[in-house]
C-alpha cells in the first residue's frame, strides 16, 4: 500500500507541474491563436493609435467606420434609411416583437450605447440623438474566442468579424460573449409568415441568401458588396453627408484615418480590451 501511495504522490507532483505550465499554454491559446498571430507579434512596430495598452497591428487591412452622431441628429431620416437599406438587402426578417428580434444595425439612445460613460449633466441634445449601433468588428473579438466551431471568425483579408452560417450550431455562446449586443439568433424560421399571413421578410432580395432557423447572425460589414467593389449599404445610404466614413484603419492615407486624426472620437466600452473598429464623433 505504501509503495502505491508513493507512486501516487509522484503522479500528483507531475500533475502539479503540468498545472504550473498551464497558464502559459492558456496565454498562448488566447493571444496567439491562428486568428491573432500578427496582433501579438507585430505589436511593437504598430502605430500606438489604439486606446488601452496595446498597439494596433500595422500589417494587413483593418476595416473600420466612423459614425458622426451630429450628422444623424441634423437629418433624423438618415438612420432609418441606413437601417432600411441594410435590412432589406440582407433579408433581415421583422417579427414585430422584441423577443424574436433580429437586427444588424439599429439606433440606441446615448445612455444605452455608452454604458461606460457618465450620464451626469450631459447636454440635453445628446440624449435625443439616435446613436447608430452595429457590430464593432473588434480587433480582439470575444465572440470569435468563444465560438466552438469557428463559425464566427475574423477575416484575414479585411479584419471584419464574419459569420459562416453553414457551420453555426446555434449554441449562442457568441451572444453571451458579445459586450455590444450586436448578435441576433434565429429563434424561428425567418422565411415564415405571421398570423396574418405576412412574410417576416417583406421583400426578398434574390441576390442574397436568407438565414435558417437556429443560427446566429449579425452585420458582416457588407463583405458581399465589398467583394464586387461596392460600399457597405449603410455607407451608401448616407451618400455624401459624411455621417458614416468607412475604410482601412491601417492605411494612414485613407479618408477614415484622416477623419480620425482630425476629430475627437470615442468608442463603446473600450476598457474591455475588445478593440472595436467603430468610432463615434459626438
Amino acid at each position: 500500500m505504501d509503495a502505491k501511495r508513493r507512486d501516487f504522490l509522484k503522479m500528483a507532483g507531475l500533475s502539479a507541474l503540468a498545472g504550473l505550465t498551464a497558464p502559459a499554454a492558456v496565454h498562448m491559446l488566447v493571444n496567439k491563436g491562428p486568428f491573432q498571430a500578427n496582433a501579438a507579434t507585430a505589436a511593437p512596430v504598430g502605430e500606438a493609435g489604439e486606446g488601452g495598452h496595446e498597439a494596433a497591428p500595422a500589417t494587413g487591412v483593418r476595416l473600420g467606420m466612423v459614425i458622426d452622431i451630429k450628422k444623424f441628429g441634423e437629418n433624423q431620416e438618415l438612420a432609418r434609411q441606413c437601417i432600411e437599406a441594410c435590412h432589406s438587402i440582407h433579408n433581415v426578417p421583422d417579427y414585430g416583437n422584441a423577443k424574436d428580434e433580429i437586427k444588424w444595425i439599429w439606433t440606441e439612445d446615448y445612455e444605452h450605447a455608452f454604458t461606460d460613460q457618465s450620464q451626469y449633466k450631459r447636454n440635453t441634445t445628446l440624449h435625443e440623438l439616435p446613436i447608430m449601433t452595429l457590430c464593432n468588428h473588434c480587433d480582439n473579438p470575444p465572440c470569435v474566442r468563444a465560438c466552438p466551431t469557428q463559425a464566427t471568425f475574423k477575416s484575414k483579408k479585411t479584419g471584419a468579424v464574419l459569420m459562416d452560417y453553414h457551420r453555426c450550431i446555434g449554441c449562442r455562446f457568441c451572444m453571451a460573449a458579445c459586450p455590444y449586443g450586436a448578435r441576433s439568433f434565429n429563434w424561428r424560421d425567418p422565411r415564415g409568415k405571421d398570423a396574418k399571413g405576412q412574410p417576416f421578410i417583406k421583400h426578398l432580395n434574390a441576390d442574397f441568401p436568407t438565414r435558417t432557423r437556429g443560427v446566429v447572425e449579425k452585420c458582416n460589414f457588407c463583405a458581399e458588396r465589398l467583394a464586387v467593389g461596392k460600399q457597405p449599404a449603410c455607407v451608401e445610404a448616407c451618400g455624401d453627408t459624411g455621417a458614416l466614413v468607412f475604410g482601412d484603419l491601417n492605411d494612414p492615407s485613407s479618408p477614415i484615418s484622416k477623419v480620425l486624426a482630425e476629430n475627437f472620437t470615442i468608442q463603446r466600452n473600450a476598457a474591455l480590451g475588445t478593440k472595436p473598429s467603430l468610432f463615434y464623433i459626438i
Binding site: 471568425f153 483579408k157 467583394a227
Partner: peptide, 12 residues
C-alpha cells in the same frame, strides 16, 4: 467554393 469565398474571401 463556399469555404473559399465565405471564409477566405476568395475570388468570386
Amino acid at each position: 467554393w463556399r469555404d473559399d469565398i465565405v471564409r477566405e474571401g476568395g475570388a468570386r
